[in-house]
Design a protein around this nucleic acid. Structure first.
Length: 801
RNA sequence: GCGGGUGUGGCGGAACUGGCAGACGCGCUAGAUUUAGGAUCUAGUUCUUCGGAGUGCAGGUUCAAAUCCUGUCACCCGCACCA
């Protein structure tokens, strides 16, 4: 009978899904295992092969864990708020709710047709009021703990459309919709005080088991740098200009100061500044510059001297000119720097351009020519009480001295900024805040959650750059939860990151309507044992969820400090032309189509066999066919079943395969695991016959990868117990050892001959065998044998001159 | 610029702790089967002047290097005037 993947797959999917085989059991007796994959954004185009690559890995792990006797939680859900749905709704006039529901249905169907063993009884949808009620609840708690606050920022604003644009919508300073030049508009927006958690987010990385690069990426994002803050008095005023520096040792080399254009110090001293007009013009120019322009490192650094004010060196009392320059950023450090041209390259270039003094305070280079930045060798000079010290010692001494004299002291700065947490859009969680003229900003009462999104006909933002919600009087008008007076609702919604920052907690207890999840259930299931997702999410998404989790831990809602124990990331699947898949290039592979033509098992297998799991790799239709051929070969393999006893070679190989497949799965080396299954199938096909037990063991190994065909063959073999309920095979260590091994004979490191010998042949014996070997003799002829290296079980190397 | 990663046949990729480079798959070649094609099976497939040479390139350590060290080039990812 032919291998009919379509009917087999349908049959087993019905069987599994109708019997709840994949439902996780709360407080089950078995050891728990929580495998988590990033939930998808249900777009209208259906699932992408990237989704499949992300899910098949932990799908294999989950199926293996169940066979190993674990109580596995392997959930799925939908991160369904977001711009694409809203834009689609705007264009077509269909409500985002309807679009979302349809897309979720399509995704669910595609997932089921692949045979994934998700627990479908725990599906979450971030746009469901029963879900976003808790997203809002967490926000309220953060608001109560002063972690959510409002502040002004500059947003991208299109003067023609009169809407606020995201960075993606305003690339190159032009509005995505109408092409007008985007303006920067000052606006009150919401921030989450993630910087308060910077140190803990850094520390917690030690408990995560990530790939080294994931860890360094998170460290870079947090961007901790240790240095000092120093106060510079401003001559003739009470003002003191605060700078952050990592090189407080070079303080005596500071010859001027630079402040960011936005620095409030400029406004404070406006009256004393004689060239304020010039500075205002420069400011305006800097403001119009896009981030890209301002951060273009090839651009010559330029600035403007502030006339009329000087800073004073805290120790020497020397007058230091102050410049404004846009290469200093307001949101890093203190927005002001002391410039040490002798020992900083940027400051050096700046000093040369404006003819400023360059002072050497660390001996070792020629500071007239270039900045000397070495911190290992240099010795302090021209630095009063620091002379003769190394850089390290000088920093320590200077920081202590600064503290003593109340001029500053050691300080830490983080690159990470607070998290801008709102959008002027409809399709997101409403921020549960009420503005009352009497009481100010008030959180909505817990019992009034969720603040539901009102039904809308039109989704365009209003003309002042506010969210479409601002147009709905019935939504906006409310009463103050504190004084009961008239009040207005906040109309901004949360960004897409919100719902995805805690979804893995909800899977644990998805239907709970009195708390986000029951504490005892969380205690049973957390932490997530293995979390897999895209490389592009390993910084932001993982940091954001860790931040929320740490906060929830602090207020006693979750029992673990960190949410995830292990994080991996799959590489991209490129189009067969080696380019990123995109509609415009026409190189997109549609997984739904592949399932129809080749079958789900073939797709599952190929997507893991395609290459190194963490590396990006191009799609290849022929490779896909190869996987289908392998399954057909396995299908025919059952004709070999019936031997009473296995050939010794088959038996050994089987156990090697068990050990190898097991290890490879744990190390995310799925491609080699599949290669090992192929090797076994090839050998078994060559044997006279194989036993029924051996074939069943092989099917168990295949089962996590290609469960439909494995179940079908298992059943046809006459086994009553389905593989989904069977146990993972054990390795018989005694069978792994082969009795005979191949020894390589080499001369001067070059292989000259090979020989099969008994495994336990000793060193002396191997050496004499090698020296007696004809080929070895030929290559050592006329030479003197200097040395013989014997590695038992592997090789003999004869060194001859 | 800084940090991380990767470089191996025609292609995707293997190679434990330094010990037979190229597993497995694709593609290709020849043969069998077939009216033919497809499918399947068998054999072969790094290059080669048959001495050898060969893991981006140039050195080094070692009896032995894809693997360790130094330098260098290319590509990818992240961050980026970070004080």
């Amino acid at each position: 009978m032919k291998y009919d993947s379509q009917s087999i797959e349908k049959k087993w999917q019905d069987y599994w899904y109708s019997r709840d085989f994949f439902q996780a059991e709360d407080f089950g007796e078995k050891p728990k295992y929580y495998a988590l994959v990033e939930f998808p954004y249900p777009s209208g185009t259906g699932m992408h092969v990237g989704h499949f690559r992300a899910y098949t890995s932990l799908e294999v792990v989950s199926r293996k864990r169940r066979m190993e006797g674990y109580n596995v939680l392997f959930p799925i859900g939908f991160d369904a708020f977001g711009l694409p749905t809203e834009n689609y709704a705007m264009q077509k006039g269909v409500h985002p709710r309807k679009v979302t529901d349809e897309n979720i249905e399509t995704f669910t169907e595609q997932i089921k047709r692949t045979g994934f063993s998700f627990d479908f009884s725990r599906v979450v949808d971030t746009t469901d009021p029963d879900y976003y009620k808790w997203t809002q609840w967490i926000f309220l708690k953060m608001f109560e703990h002063d972690l959510a606050y409002r502040d002004k920022t500059k947003v991208n604003f299109c003067p023609d459309c009169r809407v606020v644009l995201s960075n993606e919508e305003s690339q190159g300073g032009e509005c995505d919709r109408c092409g007008s030049t985007v303006e920067k508009k000052e606006k009150d927006v919401w921030f989450l005080r993630i910087t308060k958690y910077a140190e803990r987010l850094l520390e917690g990385l030690d408990d995560l088991e990530p790939l080294p690069r994931i860890k360094t990426e998170q460290e870079n994002w947090i961007g901790k740098s240790e240095g000092a803050e120093i106060l510079f008095p401003v001559e003739g005023t009470e003002e003191r200009l605060k700078v952050f520096t990592t090189r407080s040792d070079t303080l005596f080399g500071a010859t001027f100061m630079v402040v960011a254009p936005e620095h409030p110090f400029i406004d404070k001293l406006a009256e004393r500044i004689s060239n304020m007009d010039e500075i205002r013009a420069y400011r305006k120019k800097a403001e119009q510059k896009s981030e890209m322009e301002r951060t273009d490192e090839t651009r010559e650094k330029e600035g403007i001297k502030i006339e009329g004010v000087h800073a004073l060196h805290p120790f020497t009392k020397e007058k230091l000119p102050i410049f404004v320059a846009d290469y200093v950023m307001m949101d890093y450090g203190t927005g002001a720097i002391m410039a040490v041209p002798g020992h900083d390259e940027r400051d050096h270039a700046f000093a040369k351009k404006y003819g400023l003094a360059i002072k050497e305070v660390i001996a070792g280079g020629d500071v007239d020519k270039e900045a000397y930045t070495d911190v290992e060798e240099g010795i302090l000079v021209n630095s009063d009480f620091l002379d003769g010290l190394s850089v390290k010692e000088a920093i320590r001494k200077m920081n202590a001295r600064l503290e003593e004299e109340e001029l500053g002291g050691a300080a830490v700065s983080y690159k990470m900024k607070d998290w801008a947490f709102n959008r002027q859009r409809y399709w997101g969680e409403p921020i549960p805040i009420v503005h009352c003229e009497q009481c100010g900003m008030q959180g909505v009462k817990e019992e009034d959650l969720p603040v539901r999104l009102p039904d809308l006909e039109r989704f365009e933002p209003n003309r002042e750059g506010e969210s479409p919600l601002a147009n709905i009087e019935s939504f906006v008008r409310t009463t103050c939860p504190t004084c009961g007076g008239e009040a207005r609702r906040e109309t901004d919604t949360m960004p897409q990151w919100a719902g995805s920052s805690w979804y893995f907690l909800r899977y644990v207890d998805p239907k709970n309507d009195t708390e986000l999840a029951n504490y005892h259930k969380l205690k049973y299931w957390l932490g997530v044992d293995w979390y897999n997702g895209g490389m592009e999410h390993v910084t932001r998404h993982v940091i954001y969820s860790r931040f929320w989790h740490q906060f929830l831990y602090d207020i006693g809602v979750v029992p673990t400090k960190e949410p995830f124990k292990k994080r991996t990331a799959q590489g991209l699947i490129l189009g067969s032309d080696g380019d990123k898949m995109s509609k415009s290039k026409g190189n997109v592979v549609d997984p739904a189509e592949i399932i129809e033509t080749h079958g789900a098992d073939t797709l599952r297998l190929y997507i893991l066999f395609i290459g190194d799991y963490e590396q990006s790799t191009p799609w290849n239709d022929n490779g896909l066919k190869g996987c289908r051929r392998f399954l057909e070969k396995v299908w025919r393999l059952r004709e070999k079943v019936g031997a009473d006893k296995d050939e010794k070679a088959v038996e050994t190989l089987l156990h090697k395969t068990i050990a190898g497949v097991d290890e490879d799965i744990e190390e995310t080396k799925f491609n080699t695991a599949i290669a090992k299954l192929m090797t076994f199938a090839n050998e078994a096909a060559k044997a006279e016959g194989i036993t029924k037990d051996t074939f069943r063991t092989f099917l168990k190994l295949l089962n996590p990868f290609a469960p439909h065909i494995a179940e079908e063959l298992n059943e046809r073999l006459g086994h009553r117990e389905p593989l989904v309920k069977s146990s993972w095979p054990d390795v018989d260590e005694s069978l792994l050892e082969e009795e005979r091994v191949t020894i390589v004979f080499s001369v001067n490191g070059k292989v000259r001959d090979k020989m099969e010998v008994a495994k336990d042949t000793d060193k002396a014996e191997l050496e004499s065998m090698a020296l007696a070997n004809e080929r070895v003799k030929k290559f050592t002829e006329g030479k003197k044998i200097v040395k013989v290296v014997v590695v038992p079980g592997r090789l003999v190397n004869v060194v001859a001159k």
